[in-house]
Design a protein around this nucleic acid. Sequence first.
DNA 1: GGACAATTCCCCACATTTCCCCACGCGGCT
DNA 2: AGCCGCGTGGGGAAATGTGGGGAATTGTCC
Lengths: 145, 145
Amino acid sequence: MAFKGQAEYSVDSKGRVAIPAKMRKSMSPAANETFTITRGFEDCIFLYPMDRWSSIEEEIEELSMYDREVRNFVRLIMRWASEVSLDGQGRISIPNPLLDFAELNGSALILGAFDHIEIWDPDQFDGYLNEQPDDYETLAESVMR
Amino acid sequence: MAFKGQAEYSVDSKGRVAIPAKMRKSMSPAANETFTITRGFEDCIFLYPMDRWSSIEEEIEELSMYDREVRNFVRLIMRWASEVSLDGQGRISIPNPLLDFAELNGSALILGAFDHIEIWDPDQFDGYLNEQPDDYETLAESVMR
DNA sequence: GGACAATTCCCCACATTTCCCCACGCGGCT
DNA sequence: AGCCGCGTGGGGAAATGTGGGGAATTGTCC
């Protein structure tokens, strides 16, 4: 089941954020209430359920560490990655480095994004939207063919 | 399980550095809390769990020592290599030659890098990042196809 | 070959951080 | 109106990183 929807929740003083109940329910039991959280593209945080993440790891495993670009990429993706599990209240705690990276302070925008969940600082997301040259209709044309 | 995450820890006067608990836990028991530590690529130190290292040794074994380049490479990689084990507090001690090579003094950046752990001097790593021409998004496109 | 010095290894103790559990309040559903 | 689910906040206990001391080992010099 794909992740859908959005919510704006608070980030408490310990760096914890609630994951919307609807998204929690659309996770496979195989994920064991556990995510791999890492740096996303464009200033946000990605949250992959464990079962989905393991297929990404398989892709990375195919790469050759003797290639400079590969090393660079692996350093960037793995450096920010860590495993996080839901606590009894359905929250995760975001590691400090990622809090800084995404410039989260006080509140967070949680987005369902098909195979993963994204966490944005609300202001950063506004900025991102304004930067995009193409509107929804144009994008659909070029992406969906 | 792959190595993930980053941490900035201190290198004490005896050349000891703690390995983050999360990385220790993602090691196979077959590694027996032992690493092969050696010179890495791009001014850092590589730390391979024993079980992973033995597969690298198998790769090297396939190479022909009658090839000049092979001899050269083998000298470079094996010269710096040594076995280190975790002490009771989850630390390793870094051999002096490698401390000098990586220009470590006082603090170290520990990076999870999938099949190995990297140890950087924080300033060196900053420099490395700044040298890279491509950003994360561009790298991902070209590396992950 | 033996004694000394230096280094390495292992163990213990402390301070901080992280993790897990419990309690409250708001809102929607029955 | 009452109940249950959901997001929010805080406190206590265990785990984690840091520093230092003493014993065993190694290498060196006489």
